[in-house]
Amino acid sequence: MASPAARRQKIAPYVFIAPFFVLFVVFGLYPIGYSIWSSFFSMKLIGNAAPEFVGFKNYVNVLTVDPFFYTALLNTVILLFTGSLLQHFIALPLAILINGRFVRGREIFKTAYFLPYITSTVSVVVIFGTLFDTNYGLVNWAIGLFSDGEKIRWLQEAPGIKAVLSVILNWKFVGFNMVVYLAGLQAIPTELYEAAEVDGAGKLRQHLSITLPLLLPVIFFAVSLSIIGGMQIFEEPYILTGGYDNMGGDQNSGLTVAYYLMFTAFKAYRLGKGSAIAWILFLVILALNAVNRRVTRHLENR
C-alpha cells in the first residue's frame, strides 16, 4: 500500500494538466466535431430552423457552382506567393547580412525589423492605406518625383489592391522570418566557412554550397509556417477593402478564402456552407504542405 504522499505524487500531474484537456474538449474538440457534422447540413447560423441533411451538397456547391470560391482561392494563392513566400528571398539575405562578423548593433536592427510583427493589423492597414492614397499618399508622391505619369489608383483597382496587400504582408512578417533564419545561421559552425575560404570559395559560392543546404530544414519549417498563415489571411484584406460589404474591393481582388468563409458564415449566416469551405481550405493547406515537403526532400537528396 503506497503512502498518501506517494499517491498524491502519482495523481498530481494529471490534476495539473487537466485544465487544458477540459477546455480543449469543450471549446476545441466539440466545435470541430460540430463543424464536420454541420458541413453535411443546410443550416443557418442564427434562428431555430431545423437543419436539413444534404449530404455532400455543400461541398459540391462550393466546388462547382459557387462564383466566388475559385476567385477567392486564386487570390489567396497569388497573395501566398507575392505576400507570404516572396519575403523569404528578402529575409534570408537580410539574416546573412545582419549575421556578418563586423556588424555592430545587431540587436537594434533585429528589434527594428521585428516590430511590425507585433503591431495590430488595424494600425498597419490604416497607415498603409494612407501611404498608398491615390492623391495624397507618400508612395504616389515619391513616384511623382521620378515620373509624371498618371497617379496609380492603388486601392481602387484590382492589381493595386493585391500589390498593397503584398507589401503589407512582406513588411509585417519579414522580420519574423529573418529572426528564424538568423538563429539557423548561428547554428552553422564557422569552421565550415573558414575551410571554404581557404579553398578560395567566394562569399556567394560559400552561401550556395554551405548555407543553403545546411539551412534547408529551417527553410522548410519557415515556409510551412508561411503557407499555413498565408492561406488563412483574413484581417488584412478585410480591413483594407472595407469589410463584408465590399467583398475584397474591385473585382473582388482582395477576397481571400478565409474572408469568403467569414462572409458566408457571419454575413450570409450559412453555417453548413461555411463549414464546408473551412474543411476544403484545410485540405488545400494540407496539400500545399505536402508539396513543400516533397520539394524539400527532393532538394535534400540532390
Binding site: 494538466i17 460540430y34 463543424s35 458564415a265
Partner: peptide, 30 residues
Amino acid sequence: RFKGRDFLYGFVIATMAVPGFLNLIPFYKM
C-alpha cells in the same frame, strides 16, 4: 514521470496545428 505523459504532451503540441477557422463558426454558435 507518469503514464501517458509523452502521448498527452504530443497531443497538446498537435492541437497547435489545428487552424482556428475550423471551429470558429460552431464556437460562435456555442
